[in-house]
């Protein structure tokens, strides 16, 4: 579904990603953990080409997308993204936020798009909030609208960039519940998170990254229960304490 091959990325003199390779089969939920500055977010942004990799290949559904003859917009339509800071369009209400992509990008008729948006908002538990503007919603509600907005494009996979890190503790649960339901429905997803409970319950696989490299990967019980690498052990020890 998603394959990343020997990705390198530099920001100035900083070598942020040093040859990342992984493969994500359809329907799998992959969680990426690692200390801040390890390149997790940059890796996610390379997958939907918000950041252009310097070297290496990003392959979505068998098509290499980081090459000059493919528009990055096309690649981004295949893969949804949910941001740490929600980034809902502040001038649009919840319904319009979700319907905007289908209308403007897919050319869907407004009525059909709004009907679809209503269903998606109901799916994330916000049927009553379709007319609310982002500034009138709690963080948890905003993030659930953002998930609906990503789903509205019928993506082949969704990337989650620390989706609960900006939330007050009481709202984390509702967002994780929506994500868990998505994973159970077979959505392919890559999640950067510090929520170890979510990681061990939902992820089929966990990648541990440090200093721009994948240090270790494995099933949750391996990574958390019996990490092989010293750096993984140190990080997991700090997180689980």
């Amino acid at each position: 579904m998603i394959r990343v091959e020997r990705i390198h990325k530099h920001f100035g003199r900083l070598h942020v990603l040093r040859g990342i390779t992984f493969d994500l089969p359809r329907g799998e939920a992959l969680v990426i953990i690692g200390p801040s500055g390890s390149g997790k977010s940059t890796l996610l942004r390379c997958i939907n080409l918000l950041v252009e990799p310097d070297e290496g290949k990003v392959i979505i559904d068998g098509v290499q997308v980081n090459r000059p003859d493919i528009r990055p917009e096309w690649a981004r339509q295949q893969v949804g993204m949910v941001f740490q800071s929600f980034n809902l369009f502040t001038h649009l209400n919840a319904l319009e936020n979700v319907a905007l992509g289908p209308i403007r990008v897919k050319g869907m008729a407004r009525e059909a798009a709004e009907e679809k948006a209503k269903q998606l908002l109901a799916r994330v538990g916000l049927a009553a909030k379709t007319q609310a503007f982002p500034a009138e919603l709690s963080g948890g509600q905003q993030q659930r609208v953002a998930i609906a907005r990503a789903l509205a494009m019928d993506p082949k996979a969704i990337l989650f960039d620390e989706p609960t890190s900006a939330l007050d503790p009481e709202y984390i649960r509702e967002v994780l519940d929506v994500m868990t339901a998505l994973a159970r429905d077979g959505m392919t997803m890559v999640v950067v998170t510090h929520e170890m409970g979510f990681a061990s319950n939902v992820a089929q696989r966990i990648l541990f990254m440090d200093a721009g490299m994948i240090i270790e990967e494995g099933r949750p019980e391996e990574i958390f229960g019996n990490p092989k690498h010293e750096r993984t052990r140190a990080f997991v020890g700090k997180i689980l304490r």
Binding site: E73, R76, G80, F83, G101
Partner: peptide, 29 residues
């Protein structure tokens, strides 16, 4: 904010589309 443009890009909008539908209405406000 930069995130508004990124969110528009992330749903596959082209530069002029995101300008018209996302950036401009907020800048004009």
């Amino acid at each position: 904010p930069r995130g508004q443009l990124e969110a528009a890009q992330a749903i596959g909008m082209q530069p002029l589309q995101s300008m018209r539908s996302v950036v401009l209405p907020q800048a004009l406000r």
